[in-house]
Design a protein around this nucleic acid. Structure first.
Lengths: 139, 139
DNA sequence: CGGGATCCATTCCGATACTG
DNA sequence: CAGTATCGGAATGGATCCCG
């Protein structure tokens, strides 16, 4: 009775969102960790959000994403390009200009990602409140 | 003409999923980075997935999540508890037992998170293929 | 059983300087 | 303009030992 009440909240979600067999998780090939660890980087999500609006050049991205260093912008762009989320095009102008834009794969990733980001914005006050409570009295 | 064609793919998504003013992003209080950097950790998502199914005790989690060290399991659980995603209950049995379970806030996070994880599973082959192409000839 | 404390290797990331 | 190269500090995470 108490044990069944425990899972009521979860069971009320129908159908189950995911049913993962943890014993079968191959970590050398775990897509979930693969993707999350990539966008878990400090700048990936910010770049994806920016390029989801429209294509930008390197220097524009640098100005739009505050406080990012040239090194990290280059590195993050390369990783996102390698995973196929963004494309890179060089225009042979007098000083060369390079434009980055989201690919179809990138947009398809951005759909569920944006939902998660919306959740973050909607609930960050609740999270901050939870932290204050925890820091005051760790139950 | 060419410039408008550039944004067609993005503009075909209607309405825009997010419209973020990057110049207004306060990084000391950025909910997006706050949340993503947290679940971007090596084990957070795996713990959340496990506890989304039902509550588990410490030792059970340790067996279910392969290769996690005792230290990281403790640390990850504390962080998730601090953010209000999971709860912790101690049962004063002969050797004490501790049960962890997802909170309402945790479940509400898990909805959009699960969508992202489903995307990862559905598209990880495409990402792996993109990496092979990139590593063979970095365009 | 469920942790805490400590030590250590690796990784991440920022600052700076240099280049076609 | 759009990078590359190098350095060093900070953060992350694993291994091990101890404890009520």
């Amino acid at each position: 009775m108490a044990a069944s009440a425990v899972v009521n909240l979860r069971d009320s979600i129908d159908p189950p969102l995911r049913d993962v067999d943890l014993s079968n998780l191959d970590f050398s090939n775990c897509p979930v960790r693969d993707l999350i660890s990539q966008i878990g980087g400090k700048w990936s999500v910010l770049i994806l959000e920016t390029l989801a609006k429209r294509p930008y050049r390197f220097g524009e991205l640098r100005r739009l994403v505050p406080d990012i260093s040239q090194r990290m912008l280059t590195q993050t762009l390369r990783e996102l390009q390698r995973d196929g989320y963004i494309g890179r095009e060089v225009f042979p102008t007098k000083p060369p200009s390079v434009e980055y834009r989201m690919t179809d794969l990138g947009y398809s990733l951005y759909q569920p990602l944006a939902q998660l980001l919306n959740w973050a914005e909607a609930n960050h006050e609740a999270v901050r409140a939870a932290r204050v409570r925890f820091d005051q009295s760790p139950d």
